[in-house]
Structures are given as C-alpha cells and as structure tokens.
Simulated assay, not measured.
Amino acid sequence: MSAIGMEQRGAPRHRVFKHGTLAIPGGGVVDCTVRNISTTGARVDVDSPVGLPDIVTLMISTDHFVRQCRRVWCNDNRIGLAFD
C-alpha cells in the first residue's frame, strides 16, 4: 500500500456521531459533535470556532468521557484535537 493510502495518525480513529461539549478554561462551554475519536485525539464540529482557545476539555456525557486536549488544526467548523 502506498504512503498516501496509509493512516498518518498515531492511533486509528473510529467514526462516531456523538454530542459533546468543549469546556473552556475560566468558564463556559461550547456544544460540539464528535465525528471521530481515538486514544490520542478526536475530530469535532462546532457552530463557530471563533474565540475558542487552543486548550479545552472535551466531555461526552453519555460515555462519562472527559479529556483535556489541545487544538492541532481547524478548518471552517471542523477542529482536530489531540488529547494531553
């Protein structure tokens, strides 16, 4: 298989469609939709990434999931997060 067709991430991601929230240091939360997730990170969709800091906490209440993470990329309303 060519390098182009191979997974480039540290861990394979699994497609999901879950409601989540991004907690902002100092208070406040932003609703998001988790689109894929792995042991090392996730991709989420938000209404607008404007004003969202680089460090947030991703929470998925149905899974009792809480992880501090940092933004590694942003494209329109899509955000790539790496778990700390």
Rank of each mutant, 00 (worst) to 15 (best):
R9S: 08
M1D: 00
T40N: 08
T40G: 03
V66S: 14
F65T: 07
V56E: 02
A42F: 04
V30Y: 07
T57E: 15
E7Q: 14
V29F: 10
L58S: 02
T57M: 11
A42Q: 00
L22W: 01
T62P: 08
A42L: 02
R78G: 09
M59V: 12
R9L: 05
L22P: 05
V44F: 00
S48A: 13
A82S: 15
R67S: 00
A82N: 12
D76F: 03
V50Q: 14
V30P: 06
H64Q: 13
D63E: 15
R70F: 04
A23Q: 14
R15S: 06
G80I: 01
V16C: 05
V16E: 08
D63K: 05
V44D: 03
Q8I: 14
M6E: 13
E7H: 12
W73L: 01
L58H: 03
D47N: 09
G27C: 14
A11M: 04
I79L: 11
S2L: 10
G28I: 07
G5T: 11
V30W: 04
A3T: 04
N77W: 07
D63R: 10
T33V: 14
S2F: 08
A11G: 05
N77R: 12
Q8V: 15
G41P: 00
M6P: 06
P53L: 03
V30E: 09
T40Y: 05
V29G: 10
V50I: 15
V34K: 00
P49C: 03
F65P: 01
M59Q: 11
V56F: 01
G41D: 01
T21P: 04
I4K: 14
G20Q: 03
F17T: 08
C69N: 01
G5N: 12
R78V: 08
T40P: 02
T21C: 10
A11S: 13
G5K: 11
P49G: 02
L52A: 10
A3E: 10
I60V: 12
F17P: 08
R15N: 01
Q8L: 15
M6W: 03
D54K: 06
R78E: 15
T21I: 13
D84F: 03
G41Y: 01
P49N: 05
V46A: 10
I60H: 06
R78L: 15
I60L: 04
I79V: 11
Q8G: 11
V44W: 01
P25S: 12
